[in-house]
Simulated scan of single mutants.
Amino acid sequence: MIRGFKNFLMRGDVITVAIGLVVALAFSTLVKAFTDFVINPLIAAAGGGKGVGLGWQLGAAGNKATYLDLGSFISAIIYFIIFMAVVYFVIVVPYKTIQARRGVTVFGDPAPTKTCPACLSEDLPAAASKCLHCGTEQPAAA
């Protein structure tokens, strides 16, 4: 039972999805800060307001609703960078090491691709003999 759970957790797609969710969570924080402290004050400037901090007051002095708070946005960017560094060094690097011991390459360079001359799709595998989008014959890989 424990072995099955371990095998489930060590599947590449589970780890990839988990990392994707963590990145999405960190990015959502960055986006929320951008909207809360940059976009919202621009919109609120039409109605007037006051504020204090690193940034510019767009409306009446002291109104936080119209304050372009760059300090909070810079803090969110720093948070995002630190958070992603922690994810990389605590999750990705050990996972790559464990998978390398098992003989599996993860998070490596993408496979080489080529472009179809007929439909210009750029995602064909280098060894493809036909385009998967339009079905035209492909020249042999050089």
Results as ranks from 00 to 15, higher is better:
Ala18Leu: 13
Met10Ser: 11
Val14Arg: 05
Val106Gln: 08
Met10Val: 03
Asp123Trp: 06
Ser121Ala: 14
Ala111Met: 11
Gly71Thr: 09
Ile81Ser: 11
Ala33Glu: 03
Lys96Leu: 07
Thr16Pro: 00
Thr113His: 07
Phe37Thr: 07
Ala111Asp: 12
Leu68Thr: 00
Val93Pro: 06
Phe89Trp: 15
Leu9Cys: 13
Ala126Gln: 10
Ile39Arg: 10
Ala65Phe: 02
Gly71Arg: 10
Tyr67Lys: 01
Glu137Arg: 08
Ala44Asn: 14
Ala142Gln: 10
Cys134Glu: 06
Gly48Met: 03
Lys6Arg: 13
Ile98Ser: 10
Pro94Asn: 06
Pro117Gly: 02
Cys134Arg: 04
Leu54Trp: 07
Thr113Met: 11
Gly53Glu: 00
Val31Ala: 07
Pro110Asn: 02
Gly55Asp: 05
Met84Asn: 06
Val106Gly: 06
Ala128Asp: 08
Gly53Tyr: 05
Val93Asn: 10
Phe5Glu: 02
Gly20Ile: 01
Gly48Ile: 03
Leu70Asn: 05
Lys32Gln: 07
Leu25Pro: 00
Gly71Glu: 02
Phe107Leu: 01
Ala127Met: 04
Ala18Pro: 00
Glu122Val: 09
Ala46Lys: 15
Asp123Leu: 01
Gly49Ser: 02
Pro110Gly: 03
Gly71Ala: 12
Gly59His: 03
Lys130Glu: 12
Ala118Glu: 13
Gly48Asn: 03
Val23Gly: 00
Pro117Cys: 07
Leu132Ile: 06
Val14Ala: 01
Ile2Trp: 15
Gln57Ser: 11
Pro110Ala: 03
Arg101Cys: 09
Val106Asn: 02
Arg102Ser: 07
Gly4Tyr: 05
Cys116Arg: 07
Cys134Ala: 05
Ile81Ala: 14
Ala126Met: 06
Thr113Cys: 01
